[in-house]
Nucleic acid binder design. Structure first.
Lengths: 207, 207
DNA sequence: GCACTAAAGTAAGCACTGCTTACATTAAAA
DNA sequence: TTTTAATGTAAGCAGTGCTTACTTTAGTGC
């Protein structure tokens, strides 16, 4: 009788994150059940609580993995900086990620999770990594020297792109709102808007 | 023994919406429990299901009430159209509503709720009412005649303002992202960006 | 005025959940 | 080799959404 088969899983924490990640990607946040995850991993239903104090902590780890994946997805853009990379392509990459994994995207931006995530956690680091990568791309491409202007551009871009991705996923852009305008045109308007801020002088000249 | 005291509540449907609305505003979506609502309203725990097929339907009704409230909040802006109303004040009113009732705001824009809301439901009407009101304000103030341009401006504005409100509520605008920039400056940048799209000619001139 | 029907309530149960407690096993340090 | 802390197990608690079967009531047609 095998008594020491696999009492200790060995890597349960990461296995939980990976399994929950897959569930989130495919079925969304509400489909995650700690009991079901435990069953899938052939472990008792109390075991997950040795690694995560509660369900939200596990979901925060899933969100972190999501930001890491997003950062990796955006990485190839850096090598194209000197050549043909337009600024709208940076935004497009963001929107494509959101459209490709909408349910994960939703968890990554869930207010409930970060309001309890400790500052220097895995979550914060993953988020900062994405931000820094995008910020560097935008700074380089738009040639924004002033740090204050860069930050304002980043917040504006972040807001516009996230907002559009969310509204699109939530299907809140009703037909009567976009009737007669091609989807490409809508996206073009959003991308143009997202990168429209480049400092006071230019804005005031335009307005 | 009072047998016919109040077997029928009389207005349980609206009472449920109002009670759930209050819970959402104060404690958020997850704090809503159909059982607890039933107890509060002195009704059996099965009664709510005579009015709403499931919990999400009740929350959709709450979201509808939220959009109606938002529309009423925006209504006074119309009378100021001819006088001193700046376009950024329209955006500010939106952001103030979001900041004042963040947990309700979250439910109003919850993807899960509209993906099942039937087209011509109360929800859709309330959303359309808000959209039409804002659209009329923007059209009038920015003097946009072309309907296509108006729609593009609206989607861009909607995205930017919603996105900013959400990121702010989720506390995703970390200190390192906004360090050195006053909150007013951030908001100004967002508002300017939200209304920056006014048609091809102007954009191309600016970029 | 009265039987009847449909709306709207009750009561109880099912399956499921997150989380906790008490206990068992194991790996690794002392 | 002993001890200790990490990690797993087993079982239970309180709470949830939703369903089913039954009961009361209001309103309508005769």
């Amino acid at each position: 009788m095998k008594k020491n088969d696999n009492y200790h899983h060995g890597n349960l924490r990461q296995a939980l994150i990976d399994a929950a990640f897959d569930v989130v990607v495919e079925l969304g946040r509400d489909a995650v059940s700690l009991r079901e995850l435990a069953n899938t991993l052939n472990v008792s239903r109390g075991a997950p609580y040795r690694h995560f104090p509660d369900k939200d902590s596990l979901l925060a780890a899933v969100a972190s993995k999501g930001f890491i994946l997003m950062s990796e997805t955006l990485e190839p853009l850096e090598s194209r900086l000197g050549t043909d990379l337009s600024v709208t392509e940076i935004g497009k990459a963001f929107l494509e990620f959101a459209e490709g994994k909408p349910l994960l995207f939703q968890v990554m931006f869930d207010p409930g999770l970060m309001l309890q995530a400790v500052p220097d956690s895995e979550f914060g680091e993953a988020l900062e990594a994405v931000y820094n990568r995008v910020s560097a791309l935008v700074k380089s491409r738009l040639q924004i020297e002033d740090e204050m202007q860069l930050k304002q551009q980043m917040v504006a871009m972040w807001s516009t792109l996230y907002g559009y991705a969310h509204l699109r996923h939530a299907e809140m852009l009703k037909p009567y709102m976009v009737a007669g305008v091609a989807k490409d045109e809508i996206e073009k308007a959003v991308l143009t808007t997202a990168f429209s801020w480049t400092g006071k002088s230019r804005i005031e000249k335009c307005v």
